[in-house]
Amino acid sequence: MSDTLIMTGRSVRLSRRNVDALIMAMALPVMLLLIFVYFFGGAINTGTEYVTYVVPGVLLLCAGFGSASTAVAVTEDLKGGVIDRFRSLDIGGTPILAGHVLASTARNLIATALVFALAFAIGFRPSAGPGGWLAAIGLLVAYIAALSWLSATVGLLVKSPEAAGGFTFFVSFLPYPSSAFVPTDTMPSWLQGFAAHQPVTHVIEAVRGLLLGQPVGSTGWVALAWCTGILAASVAASGALFKRRTA
């Protein structure tokens, strides 16, 4: 455990100094929120105030983008010799990756706080009680951690930071065919099937429901199951991949 804390401190320092990526991770959510609300919001009818509808979507979109930089951090590590030094100190792959994942989670939570602050300023009025907030934040953390670890796994699979960047594109795209920005029943029917069942939709529906104080039924559990499933699969796969890449 204390290895993980030391490695997290390292990853936090490294990401604090990657100024370009940090500015991007903070500015993108803010810009996206403004673009969705003011550029598209007027034309989209969701039955509620659009800013209230879209905030969870923007949060997940940015979580995807922010988590994906974990892949780049892992490929950078593998390029240099530092992993060998950690290994010769008997530090396994899990603490190293967990350090990146926890740093990514911290980064994303700051971006999330920024989005909430701005959203409040432009009219976001959720009606959740403390329990709802806690559950929503918890689900967001689970989603960010799952995507970050998935991203770390991708970092172990690809050979270059550039290829890892490709993963960012894929993950950032995933929230579009979901209920993040428009209700899925406005999509063509062939897309509805995918959009209604993909993990992002469950997470968004659950977070939205929790924040608005609506009953979420089983959606919350399905969303949590997706997140823990992705996380567990990623932890297992990355453990094996780490051994293979560093043998």
Partner: peptide, 24 residues
């Protein structure tokens, strides 16, 4: 082992690198 290529974090200071290794 000191390998052929430096096993250091470029984006940490010299002191940070050593303190981290020492703690590990």
């Amino acid at each position: 082992l000191t390998g052929q290529f430096a096993a250091l974090d470029e984006m940490q200071t010299g002191a940070e690198n050593l303190r981290m290794m020492a703690r590990l």
